[in-house]
Design a protein around this nucleic acid. Structure first.
Lengths: 170, 170
DNA sequence: TTGAATGCAAAGGATTTGCAGAGGC
DNA sequence: GCCTCTGCAAATCCTTTGCATTCAA
């Protein structure tokens, strides 16, 4: 049900502001309020660099009844704001929306293991070049792209399976 | 709500059997039955080369009450069989499952216009090579990949907008 | 005849929305 | 105090499932 991340994260990009500072700017520019819930979700999201969906985020936040609880609708609303603010990127994997850090991390793509559901990040300058060439051929103005290569990761091929999951997306 | 296709389809690949023949083989090999509904859906799907979702297919089939009607659950079930049989490929766009011809057409990727929701197909040998190189670096066994480049198409940039739609996926 | 396929209605799962009360600014 | 935000419950959207009936082989 959840999404795994591999252990070789990308090198962070240098940024002037913390995600918190950047989000504050975003809020102020739109007359939106700096609420306890937004702060809680933002801190949770940027605590570690990985991929996650709404459910995983909810599990990491205080559960219902406890102090600091954030409701499911608010989590969804807030994630949308983070995407808007350029803090997160969102994509769809196996029917669920998956989020990853955008602010502070370079553009990249993914290898997706359909056995253990692990996402492995990679950067390729050649891919960007290829993408822009194809687009130019079609007089197409690129906004972004998403490449997912699916198959079986090294660990799973070698039998070192960490988790077994129902899968099959793309 | 629907998916548009551009007017420059890929060159078909030479194949020994018609989709119908190939599907019959598939059915027989699994002791499945050649029903009127399956024939109707298959004919409808291969009538023209484009991208479509379940709703669009239902619109193209005889509507409820008329002869030749196929129910929504059967359409979904049948599309799944076509994917299984290697006749169609399925991907997710903006929350809906979109299908395209696989049998008889070469592997390709898409430019997606977020203004008019048009999908433009393209082939790139270089992309396959790049994909396999990246995978090799990670000892990753490739099964397939999906690249969607989103942005604005030529027509929309020039103001020749055909349809206006709510969008934003990737 | 006999098991597979269909249509109906209803369930499912992820995400979104209306609204009344809570709370930033 | 005003207006945004939140949590709740319920709605939505797309897709799948249970089941009695129909039908291909």
């Amino acid at each position: 049900m959840s999404v795994q991340s591999d252990s070789t994260p990308l090198k962070p990009v240098k940024v002037a502001l913390t995600p918190q500072e950047r989000f504050n700017d975003y809020l102020q520019s739109r007359r939106m309020r700096n609420t306890e819930q937004r702060r809680a979700v933002l801190d949770c999201v940027f605590k570690h660099h990985d991929h996650f969906d709404a459910d995983q985020l909810l599990e990491r936040l205080p559960s219902k009844g406890k102090s600091g609880y954030v409701s499911r609708p608010t989590v969804y609303r807030t994630l949308g704001e983070f995407v808007d603010a350029g803090l997160l990127r969102k994509f769809v994997l196996d029917g669920r929306s998956v989020y990853e850090h955008d602010y502070g991390y370079p553009q990249h793509d993914h290898l997706y293991c359909s056995k253990c559901e692990k996402l492995i990040e990679f950067q390729s300058e050649a891919l960007i070049k290829l993408r822009d060439e194809v687009a130019a051929t079609h007089q197409f103005q690129v906004r972004t792209h998403r490449l997912i290569i699916s198959g079986v990761c090294e660990d799973c091929r070698k039998g070192r399976v960490r988790v077994r999951r129902k899968v099959d997306l793309i």
